[in-house]
């Protein structure tokens, strides 16, 4: 479980995130949605200890994010940001292998290698594993980054817009992988999504944010309500019943 208590981050007097009170249940896929500037990425980064909070407390699996050793947290939680740019030239296999760092400290054992292979295979990167990242398409590279954080084998996986720059087919494929990770491997995935319909189809819970506050949190059925969403996005939205559940039309 991830628990945020009175979490606050202040940029200026006018720009402020929080105070946030939130409990994200263990297991399943939780989508963070909301308009631009709502504080989704900031909240995710604070949970992932990439950004210090000014006030409040965040607990992941009972551990305080600010005071627990980064080394110990790395075996419980991982976070992938939207933009990843490396100065070093890496092959897919080397990149994914880095995910074992919290355990191997850079000295890969046979077990680490096998786990690396497992996630490369899982994300269908096997034929590409010896290619350099700059030789891949955007979608393949995104898959390699996701393989890297999954390879860390943490209970909690935080992703900041994993569908960014992916076309429809790659997006569906990526959400399929994530759903699989949540169901078969029992991981808890928290991901920022921009497309409400992707959230509706693939997530278990939706957390909607607006103006730095939690606007709504609940199951897909609870959040996919025309009034709630219209309010959050300040746009007229309608919800219709599609073949795979509710669909937002705007």
């Amino acid at each position: 479980m991830i628990k945020l208590t009175q979490v606050k981050k202040t940029y200026t007097d006018h720009v402020q995130i929080g105070p946030i009170e939130l409990e994200i249940p263990k297991a399943g896929l939780t989508a963070l949605i909301g308009p631009n500037g709502a504080g989704k990425s900031t909240t995710l980064m604070m949970i992932g200890r990439l950004l210090q909070l000014d006030e409040g407390q965040i607990q992941v699996a009972g551990l305080d994010v600010s005071s627990t050793k980064s080394k110990d947290l790395a075996k419980i939680m991982t976070i992938l940001r939207q933009e990843n740019h490396f100065v070093t030239r890496l092959t897919v296999r080397q990149l994914v292998g880095f995910g074992r760092f919290p355990y191997s400290q850079g000295r890969m054992t046979l077990e680490d290698e096998n786990i690396t292979s497992k996630y490369i295979d899982f994300l269908d990167l096997t034929p590409l594993e010896n290619r350099y990242l700059d030789e891949l398409s955007g979608g393949q590279r995104q898959r390699a980054y996701v393989a890297m954080v999954l390879c860390q084998e943490t209970d909690y996986v935080l992703l900041d817009e994993p569908l960014n720059n992916l076309d429809i087919a790659r997006s569906v494929q990526m959400m399929g992988y994530l759903r699989h990770v949540a169901d078969e491997l029992g991981r808890t995935i928290i991901t920022v999504l921009h497309d409400i319909n992707f959230a509706a189809k693939y997530a278990d819970h939706i957390c909607a944010m607006k103006h730095g506050q939690i606007a709504a949190f609940g199951t897909v059925q609870e959040i996919m309500v025309a009034n709630t969403l219209s309010d959050i996005f300040e746009t007229n939205l309608e919800i219709i019943d599609g073949p795979y559940g509710p669909i937002a039309v705007y």
Binding site: G48, L50, S70, H85, T88, F98, P102, Q152
Partner: peptide, 13 residues
């Protein structure tokens, strides 16, 4: 060398 965020996520202070 992978950057602050990735290094932190891997447990580096």
């Amino acid at each position: 060398a992978l950057g602050k965020d990735v290094a932190t996520s891997f447990g580096i202070n």
